[in-house]
Design a protein around this nucleic acid. Structure first.
Lengths: 147, 147
DNA sequence: ATGCTTGCAAATCCTTTGCATAGTC
DNA sequence: GACTATGCAAAGGATTTGCAAGCAT
């Protein structure tokens, strides 16, 4: 696996050890499009590493955050979700199905420019749009006025 | 107080009672620019209502959220902060001093447009920019590339 | 070998809940 | 007067921490 090598290097470069758990977690967390929670990741990893603990998953995700490999999205009354798409983008968060979809759009850059114009030294961006995704809107007959 | 009348009406319209605690909380939480946490609000309110409990503050903030009067901003490892500026805007979040500054910018509308173009039914937006505010950058000698 | 990591359990912190009392409409 | 809100204490849930044993380097 070539991606494994990338993670292993990223870890070692910062003095972290490349353990089997960390690599397994990276395989899922850094490729999944579903913005998994720590519990979700733990369940997944246990398929191949039955002994991993939730604590280890949390610790590993902290390391990944430090390495700039994931962003942590927190929500009221819900567990945090981890996003491996770290470039500026929009999170479309469906209030029905809880899916989160990343979309690229130039408005993300415009947000950054606006902050810089306000003399702010930008280190990161989080853009969430809450609402109903297309799938749920169709299913439930929620109609959308255009524009 | 004219603002009090507004809150009282908003509460009653939805079947909530206009208690002294709720009015006191609204006076601070809905006018403060500092994005206070529940604890912060509780401390403030106790100056005039020494018996208010943190639980009441949390319950009241839930009501205000329901009424669309505040947004709740959650963060990793920190308490939630409440934002009474409910129109789409940018939150500039300083990682040094923890201050949050709201700024208006058209990029907020562009974010919404982008979501709509993706066939998403928008109900709310949260735009956070993390970094260092102008004050802290000056104080600490953090230099900013202009752009 | 050395020191970081794991996994368990316990601890922590924020937030919510249950319930008797008090206040609002 | 009926019903909701308050305030206390206790519960809840996500995340973190301490520590002995196990790995990576």
């Amino acid at each position: 696996m070539d991606n494994d090598a990338t993670i292993i290097n990223a870890l070692r470069k910062k003095g972290y050890k490349a353990t089997a758990q960390r690599i397994a977690i990276s395989r899922f967390a850094l490729t999944s499009r579903e913005h998994p929670s720590a519990r979700r990741i733990c369940r997944e990893i246990r398929d191949t590493h039955p002994t991993v603990s939730l604590a280890t998953v949390y610790k590993t995700l902290q390391v990944f955050k430090e390495l700039g490999l994931v962003n942590q999205l927190t929500f009221p009354e819900e567990e945090a979700r981890f996003d491996s798409y770290v470039k500026p983008h929009l999170n479309l968060i469906c209030e029905k199905c809880s899916n989160i979809t990343d979309i690229e759009d130039q408005s993300a850059q415009e947000v950054i420019s606006a902050a810089k114009n306000a003399r702010f030294v930008v280190s990161g961006v989080r853009i969430d749009v809450r609402g109903i995704c297309q799938k749920c809107a169709k299913r439930d007959g929620t109609f959308q006025g255009s524009k």
